[in-house]
Simulated scan of single mutants.
Amino acid sequence: MQGVGPQQQSRTRGSGYLLAEMTWPEVEAAREAAPLVIVPLGSCEQHGRGMALQTDTVRAVEMAKLVAERMAPQAVIAPETTVGLSEHHMGFPGTITLTPQTLQQVIYEIVHSLYRHGWRKVFLLNGHGGNNAVVDIASIRIRTDFPDMHLASSGISALVPDVISQEGVSELRGHSCEVETSQALYLAPELVRKESLVRGTDRRADLDAAGRLSRMHSAIHFPQPYHRLDPNGALGDATAASADFGERQVSAALDRLTSFLEQFIALPLPDSGSASGPRSL
């Protein structure tokens, strides 16, 4: 159904592949059929005036459910991480952040636990761009300490830049914009207060000097806290969002991610070599 999100289509989704909803014998049985675990990573942070603080977490979880449904019974979903690295949003009430060191250790220990239970193929589905650098560092540690496993990661929007560019989106976007808001409208519309959506800063020319410099070149990293970029904490135009645009993004991302994961599952495990277990706990 066009424009109708997954949560509206089914409220019973998840009972067969969410680890946290299983008993341990059910997990033991699922492990035999599911070589892959998806770990959703999110945040608890401001999302402008029109979206809930848990937007990143819920988008990651709902996307993970769609993947697990399509790949059933080959994938299960670990409990989501509901707080991430959100220091750049702390200028707005309600945002909760972990330090980079803490988030890195949380990711590491989740994957380590899954490894101890026999899983050797893990995918980190990251709903929050602010987690990206920490995910990269945690992944290096994990691959170093557990060389006989495969670990991969991605966000949602990063899978579909072509779909996004076809829409004629704002010059300046990236948080609580038409891209992210459209995904939320499709995946979990209850997150969105449509009457409160406002157009954020959507042109580089409207930023102050530091903000303009921070967005001057994609290859130069000069981050600014969001309360200095926009008084509402949003970049882009959330009022241009639609569930239809969200569906196009999610559908393409789902196709591309499941195609990768099917090949990921089939990939032979690497030789553990001389590894003797975790060294960086």
Score class of each variant (00 low, 15 high):
M1F: 04
M1D: 03
M1E: 08
M1T: 03
T12M: 10
S15D: 13
S15K: 13
E21K: 12
T23M: 04
W24D: 06
P25G: 12
A29P: 06
A29E: 14
R31P: 05
V37D: 10
I38L: 15
L41R: 07
C44D: 04
H47F: 11
G50A: 11
D56N: 14
D56W: 05
R59C: 15
E62A: 05
M63K: 04
A64T: 00
K65Y: 08
V67L: 13
A68R: 09
A68T: 09
A68H: 10
E69F: 07
R70C: 01
R70P: 01
R70I: 08
A72W: 14
P73D: 07
Q74R: 15
A75E: 06
I77L: 11
T81F: 02
S86V: 08
S86F: 01
H88P: 02
M90L: 15
T97D: 07
L103E: 06
L103V: 00
L103I: 07
Y108D: 08
E109G: 01
R116W: 02
H117I: 01
G118C: 04
W119M: 11
W119F: 13
R120T: 08
G129W: 03
G129V: 03
G129M: 01
I137T: 14
A138W: 04
S139V: 02
I140S: 10
I140H: 12
R141E: 15
I142K: 00
T144R: 13
F146D: 07
F146I: 05
F146P: 01
M149V: 02
L151I: 15
L151V: 11
S154A: 12
I156S: 06
I156Q: 03
L159W: 01
L159A: 13
P161W: 10
D162E: 15
I164M: 01
I164P: 00
Q166S: 15
Q166F: 01
V169S: 10
V169Q: 12
L172Q: 02
G174A: 11
G174P: 04
H175V: 09
E178S: 14
V179F: 02
V179P: 09
E180C: 00
E180R: 08
T181P: 02
A184N: 04
A184L: 01
L185M: 15
L187K: 00
A188D: 08
R193N: 14
S196T: 12
S196H: 13
S196D: 15
L197M: 07
R199G: 00
G200F: 08
T201M: 05
R203V: 04
L207M: 07
D208A: 12
A209K: 14
A209H: 13
G211K: 12
S214H: 11
H221R: 14
Y226K: 00
R228A: 12
D230I: 03
D230E: 09
P231Y: 12
N232Y: 13
L235K: 03
L235P: 00
D237I: 04
T239Y: 12
T239F: 10
A240D: 05
A241C: 11
F245Y: 04
G246S: 06
R248D: 00
A252H: 05
L254K: 03
D255S: 13
R256W: 01
F260I: 03
L261A: 09
E262P: 00
F264S: 02
I265G: 09
L267R: 14
P268K: 10
L269C: 11
S274H: 15
A275D: 14
A275Y: 05
G277C: 10
G277R: 10
G277V: 00
R279L: 13
